[in-house]
């Protein structure tokens, strides 16, 4: 329960809620970093395929059917806790991508180099922006996809623009 003390979720604390290596190798897939019993359920309705479910009452944590999820990213903007990510570690090379919610201005541009950050906010290295989604349907929670080393796809959860004051 270390995350209750410092706000940093460890991968061990998400055991059982993460896609396995075989699924990760097959294509983009959702990672829902929601481990507490809080009253919330918009993610369930956000997935048109029904991949996300909440058993029992709305305080239960969401479960994902990773066989149904195709990593479409629509659920990312629907999560009030901004705790949904889509990772793609399936490519040929050494890189993968992380899609994440980004409620900051200015938005980065496709091709821009940014600094990838982990759950602690520590710089992991440079990342390239490969996609920026910002439609009205996303209701001011744009989705940005960045390219990172494949080994970091389960660690990178935010980024900062190079010219942003820190």
């Amino acid at each position: 329960m270390d995350h209750r003390r410092d706000g940093i979720l460890r991968l061990e604390e998400m055991r059982g809620q993460l896609p396995d290596p075989a699924r990760l190798a097959r294509g983009p897939v959702v990672v829902v970093e929601c481990v507490e019993n809080i009253p919330c359920n918009p993610c369930v309705a956000a997935c048109a395929k029904g991949a996300i479910t909440i058993e029992g009452d709305i305080n239960d944590t969401p479960s994902v059917d990773f066989e149904v999820c195709d990593g479409c990213v629509v659920c990312i903007s629907a999560c009030p806790g901004l705790s949904i990510f889509v990772v793609d570690a399936s490519g040929e090379g050494d890189t993968g991508t992380v899609s994440l919610p980004y409620e900051f201005r200015p938005l980065p541009e496709v091709g821009e180099t940014v600094t990838a950050l982990d759950r602690e906010g520590s710089a992991v290295g440079d990342a390239r922006v490969t996609r920026v989604l910002s439609s009205k349907a996303l209701d001011r929670t744009p989705i940005v996809t960045i390219e990172v080393p494949r080994s970091e796809t389960m660690n990178v959860r935010h980024f900062t623009r190079k010219d942003a004051p820190r």
Partner: peptide
């Protein structure tokens, strides 16, 4: 308090931007 009082998801949003949360 020795634990964060609010939801973890709210803590995670600022922690991953580098803000220390000192319980």
């Amino acid at each position: 308090m020795d634990e964060i009082g609010g939801y973890h998801v709210h803590a995670a949003k600022i922690r991953r931007m580098g803000v220390p949360i000192l319980t």
